[in-house]
Amino acid sequence: MTTATAQSTDIPGTVVTPARLRRSAAARRHRYSRIKMWLGAVCAGVVIIPVLLAQVLPLQDPVNGSLAQALLPPMTDGHLFGTDANGRDLLSRVLHGGQTSLLIGCLAVLVSGAIGIVAGSLAGYYGGWIDTVVSRLLEAQMSLPLLLMLLLVVALFGPSILVITLVIAIAQWPEPARITRSLVLVEREKPYVAAARVLGLHRLTIIGRLIIPNILQQALVVVFLLLAQAVLLESALSFLGAGVQRPYPTWGGIISDGRQLFITGQWWLVTIPGLVIALLVIGVNLFGDGLRDRVRRTKAAS
């Protein structure tokens, strides 16, 4: 009953205006996912880019400080973030520490992603005992006291980058495995797989060259989101004392050092590195979430 006046640029005679299109759910979803992705990229970029450039930027020495300059609050004397108890510039320590943390995070995610996707697709495709074993492992891992086991393993093998990477990878492989498994379960029933079987392709070939590329996009989004978790886990381990050793800074280590001090008013040692971690993780999560909005087919539609 309402006769909307058609805009001049429209297909004449329709009610659908560009304005209406812009307000539609699909367009809004697209717009919001873009906002999220941009916001996420900015947040993460603000952290990642300086960290990557830490060797190149004109920063002060993160390892040797001058005792006379100990515990200066932020914005004094050319120290943007202040100094720690040994007189070392906090900004520099945070950026250099970020390199260690990011390195561990990326490596761990690569390893856990690889393991998870492989295990999940094998379990999803073959079913049977492989599926049982993988599912049982997934379930068992969920009920383990994870942090304790990680601490124990680090205590056992020593806190080196390799060990911590592996430990975080083990903590994280369930996520990609589960997702991959359920995706593969769905893909398996599709006609092209049956066709491939009929053509005599080996099952592993089917998995590797047909199925995985189809689900890779969705699985990779999950893996990407794991990066944030890996960084969080690494800082938690450092905080509890199981991180990479002195005098190289790690984010969790800096916070742990500052633990005793915040009560006497030196709040920056604890809040600023945490803020950096939070910013990075929020950025990665936002970006990944926006990405997932783009990539996912809604549940109702599938």
Binding site: N86, G241, Q245
Partner: peptide, 29 residues
């Protein structure tokens, strides 16, 4: 109290006279 910081500072001082000091903190246990 403050062991790590003190030893890191000591390492710096030794550095100044040409001696390099490697720090190895042994975890508790």
């Amino acid at each position: 109290s403050g062991a790590s910081q003190v030893l890191e500072a000591v390492a710096q001082m030794l550095n100044a006279v040409g001696v390099s000091l490697e720090l190895k903190m042994i975890p508790k246990g």
